[in-house]
Design a protein around this nucleic acid. Structure first.
Lengths: 133, 133
DNA sequence: ATAATGCTTGACGTTAACGTAATCATAACG
DNA sequence: CGTTATGATTACGTTAACGTCAAGCATTAT
């Protein structure tokens, strides 16, 4: 076989993404598949990065944020300052997520209130409806 | 003054929206300001609707959903079935919001785990760094 | 009368993350 | 050698909710 590289299709099957997505990620400089003639060959490194990309997406990071994180990651496994930076970005993202959730919780509570009110109205209306019969 | 109507600017100031937004809402048939010559005049009804629109947005309804709700609202204050329908739409939205929040909570927990791990790595790296000095 | 406002209607621009063709190249298979 | 499979490139389309001009009336202040 091909040493340890994968074709675009194999990647798609393995990670459940479309070719377009992989090409898109390459265009955005998130992945750097090597070329055999015309075709892309994804290395072990690409696969590791893709996993991190997909994980990052689940966390709600934007692709741009993910790119920055991956870059830091690469630049210096030796530089603790970089890792520190990574940590900070993640912290900030966490902050955002918590805020979002809290807002959502508020909205949920508000909407629940509205619904309680709506129930009362519906009940009273169906009552008067019956009364009108 | 103008009986009970407001100009576009007054509306903007009162509700903290841009003229573009009000025109946009009119184009989307969420508002129906009357015309005095060329100019828009927003009635009490428009203001009531705008309040509902803004509230709906806080709840995360799309403008299209809001339009439908407003329409139902108008159509029959007398028809309890319509109100019932409104109630159902809101319930569905609530469902979505709860799901979203739960997903967000999961992601938050996962990310927190990651961060704990990151902390450990950073600590150990700074240690070895010192050791290397 | 003229300049400065305020308002109007288009109509194109923006953002994210791809989807969706259309066209072309290459390689294996029979 | 023709066909099928796989992949490449290019480029426009999608969605939501407006933002951002541009150009033109109309009223009001000077």
């Amino acid at each position: 076989m091909h040493d340890t590289t994968m074709t675009i299709r194999e990647m798609c099957d393995a990670y459940d993404v479309t070719p377009r997505t992989l090409r898109f990620y390459e265009a955005k400089e998130l992945l750097f598949p090597i070329r055999e003639g015309q075709k892309r060959l994804f290395t072990k490194r690409d696969r590791a990065r893709l996993k991190l990309i997909l994980r990052g997406k689940r966390f709600g990071f934007s692709l741009e944020e993910i790119r920055q994180l991956l870059d830091l990651y690469d630049m210096g496994d030796q530089q603790a300052t970089q890792l520190q930076r990574t940590y900070e970005i993640a912290q900030a993202r966490l902050q955002d997520m918590v805020e979002q959730r809290d807002e959502l919780n508020e909205a949920i509570d508000d909407l629940k209130e509205q619904l309680k009110w709506g129930e009362k109205v519906i009940v009273s209306m169906t009552k008067t409806e019956k009364a009108a019969e």
